[in-house]
Design a protein around this nucleic acid. Structure first.
Lengths: 328, 328
DNA sequence: AGCGCTTCTGCAAGCGCTTGCAACACCGTA
DNA sequence: TACGGTGTTGCAAGCGCTTGCAGAAGCGCT
C-alpha cells in the first residue's frame, strides 16, 4: 500500500505538499498539483483513514441508530443517508438497537470515539441521555422532536388531518386506528392529534393495538378491527397495512366497499400494483439526507450554532380506498 | 478524553505498561494490573480506535455488503453478524450495493483500507474480482459458492427436493416456480436442481419471472401463475410468497384447495399467524454469524489457511399448504 | 536596485497507541 | 559466589497523516 511518502518521492516533492495537494488543492501551484496527482494515480495511492483520523480527530463516519432494519421506513432512511454521505467521502454506520433504550444508550456510548456524529432514528432514550451524548459528539434526532437537539420529523399528523376531514365529509362516524409501538414518539403524537380532531369533528375513534409495526401483526389485528364495527381504518404504517389488507383479502372484505382504509406512510405501498391506497406520503429518504446534511454542517462548521431542525411536509394521496360508509 | 499517558500518570507506570495491562493482561504483574485498571476506570479511559488502528493495521471493522436492506433475509443476516461481532469488540459496517456489480466492486475497493475484511451477501461480481479483493483483505462469500473463497451457503436445493418429492407423492404434475433475480447464484442453482428433479420425476415445471424479490412483485406475478394452469407453486423467497398469497386472497384462490404453495425460505413467514406455509427453513442468522466467525479467524490466525466454508443444512416444514391437486 | 508582499513549499512536531529491545530485579542452581 | 533464566517494566521508535511556522521565490512597486 503506497503511503504519502511514496507519492512524495515519486512526484519529487515533500509529503506535506502531497497532503495539501490532495486535500486542499488551492494551496498548491498548478504544475505541482498535476505532478502530485499523476504520481498518486500511478501508485494507486489512497490515504490511510486511520492516520488521517488520528491527526484530524475525525473518522469520516457517522452512525445511524435504527430500531430495526425490517421496517422499510428505517431502511429507506438509512440507505438514503448512506448514499448522500458517500458523495462527500463519508460513511454511515448502521447500528440496530431493537428499539431498546439500553442498547441505544450503549451504542451511543460505545461508538462515540469512532464516529463524528449520530443520527438517531425514533430515539427511545430520555432527552437527557441524548443531550449528554450530544455534548461529546453531535446528535440529530429523526422522527422525534427532542428539545435542545436538531430534530427532523415528518408532518404526518397534518397529513392525517386531511384524511380525517375526508372521512368526515364522506359520512364516517366510527374509525379505527391501529397504533404502533408505545415507544414511538410519532405514534403518541399522532394519537393526540387524532383525539383532538375526533373531539372537534364528532368522529368516534377506537384505538387498536399497540402492535409492533410488522406485516404479521397487521394480519393478526385485522379481524379485531373488522369486528369493532368501524367503517374506516387508519393504520400506523404501510407494513402493517399490508398485513391488514392481506387478511382482509382472505376474509373477503372489499376495500372500499366494506371498509375504507388509509396508511400513515406509503413506503411499502410505493410500488404495489393494483388500485392505490390512501396514504400520507412520508419522505423517508429526505429525512435521512437532512440528517446527514445537518451532521456534516455541525462537524464542519462552528459546533455551537447547530442547524435548525425541520418538520418535513407530507403530501396526501387520497384515492378510492376511501368511500362513503356502507349503510348497513 | 483521557489518553494512555493520562492513565499512566494516574497509575504511576509507563504508557507501555498501561497498553499491555489493557490488551495483554497476562504480561503484567497482578498488582500493577489492578492499579492500572482502577486508574483507567477512574478516568473513564477508552482507547482511541484510530491510534490503535494506525499501529496495528486493524480497524476492528468488518464490512458486510448486501444487495438491499428491505429483504428480510439480508437484514437478518446483517443483524446477526453485527451482534456476534459486537461481542468481540468489532463492528460490522453494512453497505448497500443494490445488487449492482459495479457498486459492489466499488464498495470492495473503497472500503478496503477501512475494514479488516468483507462478508459479501449474494455477490454479483465476478469470481476474479472477488479474489482480487481477497488478496488485500479477507473476503467471505455468503449465499454463493465462489471457488477459492470461503463461502457459506444454505442447502435450499436439498430442502426443496423434499418439497418436490412430496408434491409428486400427492399427485401433482404441473408446478410453477416463481424465480428470483437473474443475478442470483442461488436461484440459478435451485433452478438447475429443479430441472433435474423434474426430468427424474416426470414433473412439468414452468418458470415464472425472473422478478425482484419484493412483495409487490409477488402480487403482480400471482395472476400469471394462476393462469398457467399449474396445481402447485414454489416461490423464490418468502417476501414474494407473501405478495402472491396477498393477491390469491383477493382473487379468492384458496390454499391448498385450489393450489398448493411453498416458499424457499421462511424468513418473512416466521411469525405469520394463521395456517403455516410449507417452507424450507433457512438459517439466515447462522449464516451471518458463520461469516463473522470465519473473518475473525482469518484476521487473527495465519492468513494462509483460510477457514473452510460450509453449506448449512435446512429443515423443511411440510404443512397443509400442500394438498393433492384439484381434480378439475 | 531595494522594498514589502504574496505564493508556494519544506521542516518538524505531534496525534495516541503498540511493540521490539534493553534494563533490571530476583530466582534457583552449579 | 557467580551465572543463566524468568518475569516485569520502561524506553523509544514508529504507524501515516496534518499543520503551524518559517524559508524561498517571484511579483509589482517606488
Amino acid at each position: 500500500m503506497a503511503s504519502l511518502d511514496d507519492v512524495a518521492r515519486e512526484a519529487g516533492v515533500s509529503a506535506s505538499t502531497v497532503s495539501r495537494a490532495l486535500s486542499r488543492p488551492t494551496m498548491v501551484a498548478e504544475p505541482t498539483l498535476l505532478r502530485v496527482r499523476a504520481a498518486a494515480d500511478r501508485l494507486g495511492f489512497r490515504a490511510n483513514p486511520a492516520a488521517r483520523a488520528l491527526t484530524t480527530g475525525r473518522s469520516g463516519f457517522f452512525a445511524m441508530l435504527v430500531p430495526d432494519l425490517d421496517n422499510p421506513f428505517y431502511s429507506t432512511t438509512a440507505t438514503a443517508a448512506q448514499d448522500l454521505a458517500g458523495a462527500t467521502g463519508r460513511r454511515v454506520i448502521i447500528a440496530v438497537t431493537g428499539g431498546d433504550p439500553a442498547r441505544e444508550a450503549a451504542a451511543l456510548h460505545e461508538m462515540e470515539s469512532q464516529v463524528d456524529g449520530f443520527a438517531v432514528q425514533s430515539p427511545v432514550s430520555s432527552a437527557a441521555e441524548l443531550k449528554r451524548a450530544h455534548e461529546r459528539k453531535p446528535v440529530v434526532a429523526i422522527n422525534r422532536r427532542v428539545p435542545g437537539l436538531t430534530s427532523f420529523t415528518v408532518d404526518t399528523p397534518g397529513g392525517l388531518g386531511e384524511v380525517y376531514d375526508r372521512l368526515v365529509e364522506l359520512g364516517h362516524r366510527d374509525v379505527a386506528y391501529l397504533a404502533g409501538p408505545p415507544s414511538s414518539w410519532m405514534d403518541r403524537h399522532r394519537r393526540a392529534e387524532l383525539v383532538e380532531h375526533a373531539a372537534r369533528s364528532g368522529l368516534r375513534v377506537r384505538v387498536h393495538g399497540p402492535v409492533r409495526p410488522a406485516f404479521a401483526e397487521g394480519v393478526a389485528a385485522a379481524r379485531g378491527i373488522l369486528d369493532s364495527g368501524c367503517t374506516a381504518v387508519l393504520v400506523y404504517n404501510s407494513l402493517l397495512l399490508l398485513g391488514v389488507m392481506f387478511e382482509f383479502g382472505r376474509l373477503g372484505v372489499r376495500v372500499p366497499e366494506d371498509l375504507s382504509v388509509a396508511a400513515a406512510d406509503d413506503i411499502a405501498l410505493a410500488d404495489l400494483p393494483g388500485p392505490p391506497i390512501t396514504a400520507v406520503r412520508t419522505p423517508a429518504d429526505e429525512l435521512g439526507r437532512a440528517a446527514v446534511t445537518a451532521l456534516s454542517a455541525m462537524v464542519d462548521g462552528d459546533p455551537d450554532d447547530r442547524p435548525r431542525g425541520r418538520r418535513l411536509p407530507t403530501t396526501v394521496r387520497i384515492t378510492d380506498s376511501l368511500a362513503p360508509p356502507r349503510t348497513a
